[in-house]
Nucleic acid binder design. Structure first.
Lengths: 247, 247
DNA sequence: CGCGAGGTTGATTTGTGTCAATGCACGTGG
DNA sequence: CCACGTGCATTGACACAAATCAACCTCGCG
């Protein structure tokens, strides 16, 4: 009865069982999307809100010279384009990386969801953490060396996968090519390859089969100066209790 | 009776005279803030929403090694931290660059403003364009060479100053040091200095006295591949008319 | 008048990009 | 079932953009 979407929103508000049922209901009908398929493209006017239940999608822009910058990875539970319809034309594109199971929420459903104060708060929380993640990516690309950029991205991805219960063993699926990793970190494919070799030699990252695992998570986080505060994965019940204690 | 805040929100919704009066009223009481003064710091829990009427502030993060990444410039009319209170602790800091005239909007006023559907829409629009600007900064730092990064930033700043009626003559105040420009573009001070020299020699940027002006705006935009779509400065009245035509 | 913050310039180093070749795994069709 | 093609990973040689280090300049201001 639960899915990654519900599990993620738990961090945004203290949901009731009824809230969970509503969320499970609206995300019950999902469709399969092939790998590397477009979802919405720059210039289009979006109507439905998209949400990833399985697989990975991304937000990106393609420059005149053909280079692309990936601006976000959407893991299971993530909403791709909440609110963008207010702006009219899309200023970027969204597409899948792997095969995905996705949900399309029409405007009426969004209205229904936001009418519920706890769900509304949780959706807000999700939007705002997405933006905080974007800010951290800017810091990552703007200030860190290539190897630390890749390490930091991995630390973030692991933390996010764990938050929705999909990385209990400190590993997540290899949903990316090295070229895509480069597009996300502002590095070339060749350089990403070398940085991965260095990280492997340092015992921080192991890529085997279709899994990316981390034998020394603490070391990875230390090396990349990763602090999870920007992801705001604090249990909302604790928050509420903390507030009560103040009164 | 109008100020940069009202002028900016005009782009977000078709405001009525009454809306403008309300906006002017809530932003009537402003306070002076010194240059390089903190507004909110990472870790704090914000309550009021801050808004710049005159001068320039910025959003930034300081890394363990002391480097800082500037993630946004707040020009006159810009809101610094709408909605962040939902997340609890700030994951970044906000501070002034120049002397500023700022408004602090307490939660009750935000409630009053968002109760008005047009103003609510305009505030949403402002948040979403801020996020779009952040995305473009990521593209800028991730994909463009140093000189184009600086040029693109200038093209954006000029466009934004013009949108609030403060750059009729294709120039805006020099609100930054070269070090700050470097923190915003992910370059060192020394390199920013050289890029500015190159831009001057190419006739694209002139910095004289306290003004930064652009003798060849079209050339600047072409050189930096600047397209203003992500700023979403389309007059909402045109949008409404365009929709009517479709019906 | 002298000090300090910010700007400018040169010499040198280094991280990352570019170009090019090779390897490897996997799927497909003969 | 093998041969081939294709997409992705890997490696080396080299080029270049940007960082670093260091000195000096300029100008506003106490």
């Amino acid at each position: 009865m639960t899915n990654a979407f519900v599990r993620k929103l738990e961090y945004g508000a203290a949901l009731t069982d009824e809230d969970r049922r509503l969320l499970a209901t609206v995300s019950a009908t999902s469709r399969h999307v092939a790998a590397r398929a477009p979802i919405i493209e720059e210039g289009e006017e979006p109507s439905d809100v998209h949400l990833v239940l399985e697989g990975v999608a991304c937000r990106y822009k393609i420059l005149p010279d053909g280079n692309r910058q990936i601006m976000a990875f959407f893991l299971p539970g993530d909403i791709c384009d909440m609110h963008v319809q207010i702006l009219g034309a899309m200023d970027h594109s969204i597409g899948t990386l792997t095969e995905c199971r996705m949900v399309e929420l029409p405007p009426e459903v969004i209205v229904e969801l936001t009418a519920n104060p706890r769900i509304n708060r949780a959706l807000w929380w999700a939007s705002l953490t997405d933006e905080a993640t974007l800010r951290e990516w800017l810091v990552n690309i703007g200030q860190r060396s290539g190897i630390r950029r890749v390490a930091h991205l991995f630390a973030e991805l692991l933390t996010r996968y764990q938050a929705v219960g999909l990385a209990a063993d400190d590993s997540f699926p290899v949903f990316f090519t090295q070229e895509e990793l480069g597009s996300a970190t502002g590095l070339t494919t060749v350089h990403v390859n070398r940085m991965l070799r260095d990280l492997r030699e340092q015992g921080l990252v192991v890529i085997e089969g279709r899994r990316c695992s981390f034998p020394d998570v603490a070391g990875l986080k230390r090396f990349s100066a990763f602090t999870p505060n920007y992801l705001h994965f604090r249990n909302p019940r604790h928050k509420a209790e903390a507030k009560e204690r103040l009164i």
